[in-house]
Design a protein around this nucleic acid. Structure first.
Lengths: 250, 250
DNA sequence: AAACATGTCGTAAAATGTACGTTTATTCAC
DNA sequence: GTGAATAAACGTACATTTTACGACATGTTT
C-alpha cells in the first residue's frame, strides 16, 4: 500500500457578480514580490480567492470564512462545486514557491474543493486580501489563471448556466430592487443569447414570487421601469405547490 | 494559525442498480469480527463501498479502481457528487476502531469525496470485498447506515432524480436490450410516481436515439414487448441539434 | 373461448412557447 | 411647447407540447 503523507486541502471560490451588463468574477492578483524568481508573464498572475485549510472545520464553513474576510458579509449564496484532485494540478516551481511563501507550508500535493458564490456586486469587497489585491474581471475576457483555476472557472460557469435555468439564483446577483430589464440583461449575459423582451416579461411576470414595487426608475430617457423584488417565501410555496401537483397527475 | 495534520481523504461510492422494479444500492456489511468491542446494532453495520486514499492519484481514478475491484468492470458510469467534511462525521469509538483495524491507520479526521455510479445489476458483483460482504439493498427500505452514509445516499438520490429528468442516464441502469415498460418502471421507481403508459411511450419513442430491435420478449403472460437499445452517438447528435436551434430563436 | 395484461393508435383540450404589432411614459433637442 | 427617440408595458394570433383518456390489438394463461 503506497502509504504517503495526506494531501493538503484547500478551498477555492469562484465569486460571481453582475454589473448590469457583464458577468464578473472576483480574482486575486498574486503578489509576486513574495516570490524570489518572481512571476514572469503578467497575464498569469491572477487566481481565485481561496485558502489552504488548517482549521478543524467543515469546508463550507471555511469557504464562508474566506467570503467573510473578503466582503464582510456572512449571508452569501455559496454552493459546493467539485473537487479537483489531479496530483499534477500544482507542479510548477513558481507555484509551489508561492504557496510556501504565502502559507509557510511545504505542500507536496493539494486537493482543492471548489465552491461558487453569487454576490451583489455593490456589496463592498475589500481591495486587498491576505493573498493579494482583489478585483472584478469580466468573465469573457479572462484568458489565463494561475494553477488550474481557469478550469475551475469554466466548471463554475457551466453550473451557473444550468442553475440559472432551473433555480432562482439570478436574484442573488441583482440588487434587492431590480427591473425586468436588469433581470433579462443578466440572463442574456450568462446564456450568451438575445431574448425577446416581450416574451421574457410575460414569462417572468407569471411567477408569484416576483413582487412589483411602487418605486420606478428615475432620470432615464424613456418610460421608467418598475422595480421588483424577489420573495423567497413565495418561491418556496410555488415550488411546493408544483411538487404536490405532480403527484396528482397520472 | 491552527496548523494541524492534514485530514485523511476517502472516497465513498453510491452504486445504484435497478432490478426491474426497485432501485437498489450496493452496500458492504462491515465485518464486526475485526473490531474488538464489536458492533452492537445489527441494523447499523452496513456502509457504502469506499476506501481511504493513499495513492498519489486523482480521486476519480481511485473511485474507478474501487469499482473495478467490486465489479471487474472499468467502463462504468461514475460522477462526483460532493465532499462531506464535517469534522465530527466520524467520531464514534467503534467507527474509529473499525477504520484502524481495516486500514491500519490512526485517522484523526476523514474528509470523504462521495461519488455516484450507475450499473446494470446483472453485471456480476463480487460477494466479498476487502471491507466485507457486499449486497444489493432496496433503497426504500434502508433505515440506517454507518458513519454519515445515509446522508450521502440521500444526496445521491436527489441527484439521480434530477439527472434522470435531464440526461439519458436511465440506460446505464437498464440492460442493453430493454422494453419501454422497463424504462417506465425505472422512472416510476425513482420518481415515486405513476406515469401514463400511453403518454410515456409517445414521449420516449420520439427520441431518435432509442433504437427498436427485432427481438421481443418471450414467455410472458401477455403480448410480448419489443426490445430497444440506447444509441449514444444519436443522442449526442440530437443534443447538438437542439443546442444549435436554441441560438436561432430570438 | 374467456380473462388478462400490456402494446398500439388516436384525439381533443389545456398549457406553454413563439413571433410580432401597438400603446404609453419619459427625456432631449430644437 | 413640440416632436423625435427610446424602452417599458400591453396585447393578440399562431404553433408546439403536454395531458387526459377512449378504443382496440395482440399474445398468454386458465
Amino acid at each position: 500500500m503506497g502509504q504517503l503523507v495526506n494531501p493538503s486541502i484547500s478551498v477555492d471560490i469562484v465569486i460571481f457578480g453582475f454589473d448590469g451588463l457583464h458577468l464578473k468574477v472576483l480574482l486575486v492578483r498574486r503578489d509576486s514580490s513574495k516570490v524570489e524568481n518572481s512571476l514572469k508573464s503578467a497575464q498569469c498572475d491572477h487566481k481565485l480567492p481561496g485558502s489552504l485549510i488548517f482549521e478543524n472545520e467543515d469546508l463550507t464553513t471555511s469557504a464562508h470564512r474566506i467570503l467573510k474576510e473578503l466582503t464582510g458579509l456572512s449571508d452569501i449564496y455559496l454552493r459546493q462545486l467539485q473537487v479537483f484532485s489531479d496530483p499534477n494540478r500544482i507542479k510548477r516551481s513558481e507555484d509551489l514557491d508561492w504557496i510556501t511563501k504565502n502559507y509557510g507550508v511545504e505542500a507536496h500535493r493539494i486537493v482543492t474543493v471548489a465552491y461558487y458564490s453569487l454576490i451583489k456586486i455593490d456589496n463592498s469587497v475589500i481591495k486587498r486580501s491576505v493573498e493579494g489585491e482583489t478585483s472584478w474581471s469580466d468573465v469573457q475576457t479572462i484568458r489565463q489563471l494561475a494553477f488550474d483555476h481557469k478550469q475551475i472557472l469554466l466548471t463554475a460557469l457551466e453550473t451557473l448556466t444550468r442553475q440559472l435555468q432551473t433555480e432562482p439564483v439570478a436574484f442573488e446577483l441583482l440588487p434587492k430592487k431590480f427591473t425586468i430589464r436588469q433581470l433579462q440583461n443578466l440572463y442574456e449575459a450568462v446564456l450568451g443569447t438575445e431574448l425577446d423582451n416581450r416574451n421574457f416579461r410575460k414569462k417572468v411576470l407569471k411567477f408569484s414570487y416576483l413582487i412589483p414595487l411602487e418605486e420606478k426608475e428615475k432620470d432615464v430617457a424613456h418610460k421608467p421601469a418598475r422595480f421588483y423584488r424577489f420573495d423567497k417565501t413565495r418561491y418556496l410555496k410555488e415550488v411546493k405547490r408544483k411538487y404536490n401537483l405532480s403527484f396528482i397527475h397520472s
